[in-house]
Computed example of a mutant assay.
Amino acid sequence: MSLTDIRIDNEYNSDSNIILNNGDTLEYLKTIPTGTIKLAITSPPYNVGKDYEVKTSIENYLATQEKVIEELIRVVSEDGSICWQVGNYVEDKEVFPLDMYYYQIFKKHGLKLRNRIVWHFGHGLHAQKRFSGRYETILWFTKSDEYTFNLDSVRVPSKYPGKRHYKGDKKGQLSGNPKGKNPSDIWEFVAKEWDEELWNIPNVKANHPEKTIHPCQYPIELVERCVLALTNEDDWVLDPYAGVGSALIGALKHNRKAMGVDKEKDYIELGKQRIQDFYNGDLKIRPLGKGVHKPSGKDKVSQIPEEWKDNYKK
């Protein structure tokens, strides 16, 4: 299958399944019809001085992002959602938790927070003057109380499926749901998909199968869980900071329509190639729910060095 067969449009076209545009996020959002999008999901620039960012004060940064958020609210349908995935902004060695700042912006514009989801990962930058950060958060907002939420698509196995009511009219009847239980807002994917309650998804570093040239790429499976829960087939999923297309691929994988924009041309071209590789069956994707690697202790790297054995804390 070629890119012409796939048909990736640059501009909004209601007949398309994939739109990936190289341009300014705010200007592109203004071209999208009101109420078109069921789910807007993204990880915006954190203003930490990456190659694709221009570092500015946190006040200016948030003011710029608020303009983008205003347009996102316009293009998202009344039963739609916005998932805003962020970490921390660091200035002069002080940490500013971005989710707290963004919460105020979304609330000011009338959105309702449904969950603050914790994404935990085991590897990242090490710190010397504070504890090393190992999580980021996803703020899930809706425009109204009538929003799409497919609970059955994201249930986790019950720990005690045979539990029964012990009193009342339902005494003796099974108390759970045969499809599993409702997960909490802290999920962990360890041995089985949806099996625990902390989103323990590896971040995309050097040995991750999805790794590209993008310095802050997030994993496809992080998007998939939101897509399954918050959209239906053929709904539009939008990433306003599309990068190399991870969110689009997560949507296309589950028969949704995908739209994205990014100002970096190299990322857009790589995103198009990744979409083609996905449809050709050549794209390496970490499977949804795959267990996180745990060292066996048999390999040399995971063993305690002889030089450390006298003072190493287990």
Rank of each mutant, 00 (worst) to 15 (best):
T231G: 03
R7W: 11
K38D: 04
K294L: 12
G122L: 12
P161V: 07
N311C: 12
D266I: 13
Y135F: 14
E196L: 11
G133K: 09
N177A: 06
A229R: 01
I73L: 08
S296K: 10
H293W: 13
H165E: 08
R7M: 13
E197S: 12
Q128M: 14
G250I: 03
P45V: 03
V156N: 07
I220E: 00
D92M: 10
P44V: 02
F96D: 02
F106P: 03
R7T: 12
V227P: 02
N311D: 14
F96W: 08
V54E: 15
L270N: 06
N10D: 13
K93N: 15
H214C: 05
R134I: 09
I32H: 07
P45Y: 06
W84K: 01
V68K: 00
T56C: 11
W194Q: 12
E94H: 12
T31D: 05
V118K: 02
N203G: 10
E66A: 08
I304S: 04
D24Y: 05
Y135C: 10
K298I: 12
P161H: 06
A63R: 15
W187D: 04
I73R: 00
S2T: 15
V95P: 01
V118F: 05
K179T: 05
T148V: 15
L222Y: 02
N255V: 01
I37M: 04
T56E: 12
G245D: 00
C216L: 10
V227L: 02
G260D: 02
E66L: 08
Q276S: 09
L62R: 04
D145V: 09
H126Y: 14
D169L: 14
K171T: 10
P161M: 07
E196I: 10
E221C: 02
S57L: 09
E188S: 14
T64F: 14
A258D: 01
K205M: 15
Y102F: 15
P44I: 03
L198V: 13
K107P: 01
N203F: 10
